[in-house]
C-alpha cells in the first residue's frame, strides 16, 4: 500500500503547490489545506502501514500481544491535524478580513 500512497501524496503536494502559486486568496487557502493533509499522509506513510491492529494495549496486559501499528507517527499526525485546522482557520479569517478591507482578492502583482 505504501507505494500507492506515495503517489497520492505526490499528487496532493503538486496540487497544493500549484494552488499556492495562484493569484486568488481562496485558492491559496485551499492549497494550504491540501498541503497540510499531504504532509500528514506523508508522515503517516513513512512510519510504515499495517492493517494488523491499533496501537492499544489490551486490558490485563502490560505490552501488546501482537503486532501493532507504529504509534509515534500517529501522535505526530494527530496534533498536526489539529494545528492544520488552526492554521486553516487563521488563514481563512485573514482572507476574509483582507477581502472585507480591500474588497479585491488577487494577491499583489509584483
Amino acid at each position: 500500500m505504501e507505494p500507492l500512497l506515495a503517489i497520492v501524496v505526490g499528487v496532493l503536494f503538486s496540487t497544493a503547490i500549484y494552488l499556492m502559486m495562484q493569484r486568488n486568496l481562496i485558492r491559496i487557502v485551499i492549497g494550504v489545506i491540501i498541503l497540510s493533509n499531504a504532509v500528514n499522509l506523508l508522515i503517516f506513510t513513512l512510519g510504515r502501514l499495517t492493517r494488523a491492529s491499533a496501537p492499544l494495549i489490551p486490558y490485563g496486559q502490560n505490552v501488546p500481544l501482537e503486532d501493532i501499528a507504529n504509534p509515534l507517527p500517529q501522535a505526530l499526525v494527530l496534533t498536526a491535524i489539529v494545528i492544520g485546522f488552526g492554521l486553516f482557520a487563521f488563514a481563512l479569517v485573514l482572507t476574509y478580513r483582507t477581502y472585507k478591507e480591500i474588497g479585491t482578492k488577487p494577491v499583489k502583482e509584483g
Binding site: V9, G10, F13, S14, M21, L46
Partner: peptide, 13 residues
C-alpha cells in the same frame, strides 16, 4: 514547478 515538486516527494518516499 508543482509537478516536479510532487514527483520529488513521491520519489523520495
Amino acid at each position: 514547478i508543482a509537478v516536479s515538486a510532487g514527483l520529488m516527494v513521491t520519489l523520495t518516499l
